[in-house]
Amino acid sequence: MKEEGKHKKAKKYGMVINLDECTGCGACMVACMAENNVPFKEDESNKLDSIAWMRVYKLTNGKPYPEAEICYLPRPCMHCEGEHGHAPCVSVCPATATDYNHETGIVSQIYTRCFGCRYCMVACPYHARYFNWWDPVWPEESTKYLSPNVSPRMRGVVEKCSFCFHRYQLAMDKAYLEGRTVLEEDEYQTSCAQACPAGAITFGDLNNPEHKVHQLAKPDNKHGGRPGNPNVFRLLERLGTNPKVYYMSSREWVRQAGDNYINNEDLAKNYRH
């Protein structure tokens, strides 16, 4: 009973990214960097050590010219729920520097608690977690544009997308002042969703039937949030990470690229039982 009541109340912020509309322009990446004081260094072309909370991947269908197709896939932190909040990265952190918030469904990362063991990075199959290998250095004048809402990270800690949680905090502050405790859908939007020039990113409460994300993804909470919309999929659904970022594509090969399948496997049967 109690569990049920709790469930009703809990929000589950998530995203639906329409891959048909995503143009791969990279605005989400930069909007995120600018919003979250993400540092940069002289050479960022080695993507193995380039911090990008939001990273846009380029997918190909593997066919030769001229049948080749490409699709872009923006990848923020998936804010996995796993089973009951046991996100792959959260349960492994030895110092409780990251947690799963049951009230919002957001996976946090506390930079000042993190001591840099990087176990969470190993645990995350999405490569959504980034380590500060270098001291973040801003050119002299450039520190002026740093936002006070997100603390700059120091060398030696892990960081990742927070679904712009500070925007939630600021919106809540305003709500409190106005005597409210509930936010409207547009009061809390992530920087990437707001910036996307193609309008491909939708953000909101997956548990709220009035929110657009819920209507698009039709998540089935009884079955680990599985999407009810046949064009919607999640990355690595079969691992049971229960991510809160849903992708939408009308193309079969794109949907299949979201997960691993062994040859001749009956896809539908295997994980939609």
Partner: peptide
């Protein structure tokens, strides 16, 4: 929602006070 506002933030609420 029948919910009571809570201060209670157990271990699962790092982001409540951290940024």
């Amino acid at each position: 929602t029948g919910n009571k506002a809570r201060v209670k933030t157990v271990k699962e609420a790092c982001f409540v006070c951290h940024k």
